[in-house]
Write a protein that binds this DNA or RNA. Sequence first.
DNA 1: GATGAATGAGGATTCATTCAT
DNA 2: CATGAATGAATCCTCATTCAT
Lengths: 207, 207, 207, 207
Amino acid sequence: MNDIIKNIPESKRDRILNSAFEEFSRYGFSNTSTNNIVVNADISKGLLYHYFGSKDKLYEVLKELAAELAFRDTVDEINWNESDIYRRVKQYYKIKIRIAKQYPYLFRFIDSVRYEMGESALDEYISTISPALYKNLLTYNVDFTKFDDSIDIRKSVNIIQWTIERYVDKAIEDIIHFDIIDEDKIWQQVDAYIVILKHAFYKKGYV
Amino acid sequence: MNDIIKNIPESKRDRILNSAFEEFSRYGFSNTSTNNIVVNADISKGLLYHYFGSKDKLYEVLKELAAELAFRDTVDEINWNESDIYRRVKQYYKIKIRIAKQYPYLFRFIDSVRYEMGESALDEYISTISPALYKNLLTYNVDFTKFDDSIDIRKSVNIIQWTIERYVDKAIEDIIHFDIIDEDKIWQQVDAYIVILKHAFYKKGYV
Amino acid sequence: MNDIIKNIPESKRDRILNSAFEEFSRYGFSNTSTNNIVVNADISKGLLYHYFGSKDKLYEVLKELAAELAFRDTVDEINWNESDIYRRVKQYYKIKIRIAKQYPYLFRFIDSVRYEMGESALDEYISTISPALYKNLLTYNVDFTKFDDSIDIRKSVNIIQWTIERYVDKAIEDIIHFDIIDEDKIWQQVDAYIVILKHAFYKKGYV
Amino acid sequence: MNDIIKNIPESKRDRILNSAFEEFSRYGFSNTSTNNIVVNADISKGLLYHYFGSKDKLYEVLKELAAELAFRDTVDEINWNESDIYRRVKQYYKIKIRIAKQYPYLFRFIDSVRYEMGESALDEYISTISPALYKNLLTYNVDFTKFDDSIDIRKSVNIIQWTIERYVDKAIEDIIHFDIIDEDKIWQQVDAYIVILKHAFYKKGYV
DNA sequence: GATGAATGAGGATTCATTCAT
DNA sequence: CATGAATGAATCCTCATTCAT
């Protein structure tokens, strides 16, 4: 499947993929018109079928690509030696923003697939790899000795993740709506929150 | 909106509603054919449009009805003076089964709407009334003094709800698949679980 | 299958059937566009599918109708007690012309089906009933005592049939091209030939 | 037209021609996809159009080639001094098998053209040269004095031809299906039949 | 010569909606 | 009330043909 994408000239490839990600995430599989996809991608109808053969196949390729980028590659790229929970989480969300800059609708697409499918290629990632990724992100090799023992660490960790996630998801929506984001500003704001969160959850010495 | 339903002769009404609930919950809004709805309801196409005007309007009416039955009426019907958590929860699920007997696909329909819509009439119930219903069901006027203080009451309550819910949802699927259920048997089995759960969560005196 | 045709109002029915007979006989099954059929029949695309469901089904119905008219009904209508070969053959071709007046392309359609199919519903008529019809037409209950014994009767009969057929097929082509024929004139010319043929093949007493 | 074929390197030529003969004979002109032709011939789409210009032109060239091989060249190659009907007929079918070994689908292609066309280049051969070829094959310079006078010679000749033809056509189908035939065996079997046929039709002295 | 990406008109089919009866 | 015939725009997909490389 990946061979299909590899063979498309870069210039067109992301136009096609983004157009398809957007349409499918907006309208679902059956309500998405290949017509709209090709118009937005500025290619001919024939070319879409030259590359992908059918609407079904296109959808499969998108699911495969989404799984690759959002789960497999991400797991490989994270530096699991980073034991500080804040830097660990920031790492992950920096990757997510980088992906969203290339494919703004990819994460919305993943959400929409989750809704449409019972058992499928992507579901493997959603139901298995995705929870595992999040679990490992927040636990594997994390230095919990920095945390204040009197506080529920798991919940603390959740609050940390949710807070950062909130900013990042808002940033991704900004990419979708305004086509551009001020990434520096995002990380500055995130860092400001991290200062507060460290005060709340870390032992005095680690703040 | 409710006037529309009121004006449909009883003999046809539930045939139409159930056919529509089933099709929409199976295939989603846009992938549902009004043709299938009228065939399964054994009415003419013209009649569907006579009553509902359009596919959109039909969908709206169904959402409204679903919200009415599954949330508004249910809230009104629950006896909020019943402070025993087990009897309280059983009350709710008895109502749910009664609704499912009349409209087997209604709860599947609600799930499907949640998936398809961003902001909609039903969302008001899903995002506001539905969580409130569940919260009140498990907390409002509930006599928590019966609970063993050493145990996390919230989690206990969740286990109680989840256990009962599991049986009820399975029963609703049976209504869909076999058209009939043995309700007595369901409640017997639920009661057997309640005995176990009371041992686990209630103070000795209340078991 | 015949129910489909029966349910179409007469005014439209023959417009549709003739348009389809013409297109299919001209271009073959796959090269025939349903678009052209509906344009020539002056109906909407949807209506064609409302009646016939698919291009395949339409083709099946046409084959069935062709077999019915050109073979089954024809066999039933011929007066097999007519033992004079000339009157017998004329009978058959009068039926053929009557059919062609209603469905000018029907016989061309049959020829085209013969070419496209291996084994099919119509083939049953073409490969079995059609040869049987011709054989019986020229032999069953025919009074061969009228023939001059010194001449090959079978060949004589063929010449008789071919001569009449030639005029009739030409007449059918005229129906196609000019929309109208002078049937009286055709039979006058045919009768003139019959006089000659009787001189050639019949015993003196029967001329 | 023949220049087109001449200019194609031998290595590719027969691959292209056989692929095209097969597709056209299977699916007819309009239902044949040039895509399938190039895939089966293992050439690019562009090359097909480089050589032939269009699907129509390709079809014309194939018809021309078929006429050349199956009629013109065959007529030239037959030794018309061979007056023995059995050897004469065997000659012809040996040529036919040699052609079929190079172009297995050529004779099926000719049959399919006959079906599709009204008036065309190939029809000239089908309607004029082909009947003439068969007529001459079975009559021109044939020594009929060998035949038993009491038997209808024409019919005898037909039986001779049909018998041999049956074996040869079966052999050609074997070429198509199994890619190989045992030609010696075919002629042995044909000769065995000839012995029988001579007994039936020849005067005692020529058996 | 040789490639195959690219085109876009045209293919069959579906379906929400209307309206005369 | 009730019907279902009728519409036609929109659906996915195919394919002969072109052309830059």
